[in-house]
Amino acid sequence: MSYKKAEKIGGYLKFFILLVFGILLMAPFVWMISVGFDRSANIAMPFPPRLFPDDASGFNFSIVFENGRLIQSYLNSAFVTVTSVILAVSSALLAGYAFSKGKFKGKRLLFVIVLCTLMIPMEPRLIPLYKLFNSVDLLNTFWPLILPSIINGMLIFLCKQFFDQLPDTIREAAQIDGAGEFKIFFQVYAPLAGPIAATMVILSFIGSWNDFLWPLVVLSNQELHTVPLYLASFSLENGTSLGGLTMALATVSVLPIIVLYLFLQRYIIQSIALSGVKGE
């Protein structure tokens, strides 16, 4: 009996600890929104911190929207991300399928090459890629952000694993009917790939939306800045002055992603977990 009681108290304790740390983790977001509504925070941050500003107004937000650069950067980010995701997912579907169901010379070697690409960081490629896109006069366009997303080793790997689980018997049936490999892929396997495609869209969306270093190198034209680039340039220009505006800007750039996340949380968390059990 007392054992059960201890378990119960332990349960409440766990809940309490999680709640306290959860609040601590969320505090920066709550504070961000609160300061965003505080016009006077542009001169001096409200201190001691308070949840509701003394003189709440949408002033900071209206400046952020009137300025227009955030909206422009949102449009830029959206365009780059959507095209990159389409490119990344379709090329990974094709390659992942071939590595799973294909029979051809050098399959193992080529797959090892794909896995090796996971080990190569961006930094050593930065300058040659910059020079490459410079030589074809594509700096300050979206091409350098979109084109390299055609290769994503992680997505190919996940995709291969997914197709590995699908039985070969469907293939053989279609083959007896005389269907070619492309037809088998597009009409038989691609329609079954919904779950893994969703995962791939989520993972490549997160990667592309948050990409920073490479866009920073190739986009010097402010009009083409993506959201992270605009945030960084604003932050570096103003330092820790203009607190109200900075926080309004941060809110507008973070909140839509959070809302999207809350709607899709089950799928997003599943996708992240899937990308993490690859080692097993």
Binding site: L25, P28, F212, P228, L231, A250, V254, I258, I272
Partner: peptide
């Protein structure tokens, strides 16, 4: 998991304050 979905750039901007 929420902090992880916000971009680290926006997070750094908030953390400066």
């Amino acid at each position: 998991f929420l902090p992880n979905v916000t971009s680290i750039v926006a997070a750094a901007m908030i953390f400066a304050f």
